[in-house]
Design a protein around this nucleic acid. Sequence first.
DNA 1: AGCGGATGTGTACATCGTATCCATGGCGTA
DNA 2: TACGCCATGGATACGATGTACACATCCGCT
Lengths: 253, 253
Amino acid sequence: MAGKSGAGGTDGRGAAGGAPPAPSLWERLERPAPAPRPAALSPARIAAAAVALADAEGLEAVTMRRLAADLGVAPMAAYRYVSGKDELIALMVDFVHGEMELPDGTEDWRKVMRAVGLRTRALMLKHPWTVRADHFSLTPNQFAVTERALTALGGLGLDADTMMAVFRTVSAYVHGAVGSEVGLSLMMRKRGWRTGDEAREGLAPEMTWLMNTGRYPATHQYLTEARRKDDAEWRFELGLDCVLDGVAARLGI
Amino acid sequence: MAGKSGAGGTDGRGAAGGAPPAPSLWERLERPAPAPRPAALSPARIAAAAVALADAEGLEAVTMRRLAADLGVAPMAAYRYVSGKDELIALMVDFVHGEMELPDGTEDWRKVMRAVGLRTRALMLKHPWTVRADHFSLTPNQFAVTERALTALGGLGLDADTMMAVFRTVSAYVHGAVGSEVGLSLMMRKRGWRTGDEAREGLAPEMTWLMNTGRYPATHQYLTEARRKDDAEWRFELGLDCVLDGVAARLGI
DNA sequence: AGCGGATGTGTACATCGTATCCATGGCGTA
DNA sequence: TACGCCATGGATACGATGTACACATCCGCT
């Protein structure tokens, strides 16, 4: 299904000659107002509204119709600016990465990577829906993050592949860790639990049954002995520091 | 929406007395055949069919109707076994984790964690849709993985919180890394690209425009210099080894 | 003055998840 | 042996979603 619109390229539309190669989403995003006409809609306005909606009510509330309603516009109006919902979400992901401030200056690579990790986590906790949205890291503001990391990794004698591998390793950890953190918090919100204790209480029947199978003694022991089950920040930073330690050690930087 | 069906608990249905506390999905999964009657459907059969479908045509092809058709059954039939699509997906995630063989024996913690990481990656590459499915790690077969990791981490003088933090750190890296790997490959499949070169060719217009903004010199340099852009396995194992190095170093194990 | 293209509107359709009610048939009990 | 019950699956239907398509409108340019 679909697939027809984007790929074809030279459909017979534009007389002869060469149809312009369909400007990319990011190209369109930057044209302040493609026409001199002060259009009511714009990619940026659409992105802002969609992000506000997703932040407030979750990604599942972001519906083309609901978005249009929030923008005071007809359901199909946004389709002049995004080719479909996929592009909408790409726009949203890019938009929120725009508000991430990157560490500047000539700091130590490790401080930069750590700061990027912490700020990425903050960003994702603030916009939990980013977890469900695909991120191929192909949007301008995501490239800006990559760019900052790569510059911090320059001048250390690493080849291009290794520099990128380091960034992606740290990135993978951050996305994975925040992903599970957010996953849990989304589940809690969906079921109406506000605290860790409430969640454990709500999960208790299922957990009790599972633990009573006797198959998970170590896990059961964890459940009874652990005292920092709700300290996500401690866990995240410990893990991040481990990752950075490992990168430094293995690559000798 | 919804939410009405699961929560209520004691609806007036069962005369007086105490209604049984609604057996969990996992409890139902294990009853070989809840009734003596040889039912055509079962959670396991449903899970197997759904997984086969998702493997073959992607998670978006897994529709209650399509699943029913594959099972040779009416669209609503599966609802006798799962409360809704969320539970279906939980069942699928659990099902595929059941085929993961865990390292046995009394091996070194590091070997175990590394093996678990590699096998998890293999599992996720084989079933790419697991990336989009939420994983709170709350299904029996996911607990089995956690259990194996925790036992490998025992006897090292770590407290319960730290042991779990280690497992979750490695796990976060693995899920993050494979997540982006799979994300890329899903995008490639969606756009019909089969090789890395095809993908780069297809992405070229967008990338060229982005790089021509001059904002990403380091990224641009990476694109021209890198020689292992398609070596996902190298990248994954390098990152995994970094993470394990860091854990070992920081925790002195 | 009037034309053309960019912008937003209205209507419509296939498809999705799932609530609800109905038919059936094998088992335990009498 | 006969009966009735409940687990099982079928049928129908509803509201919501993404989006294709054709139409109306209004600006700035010639």
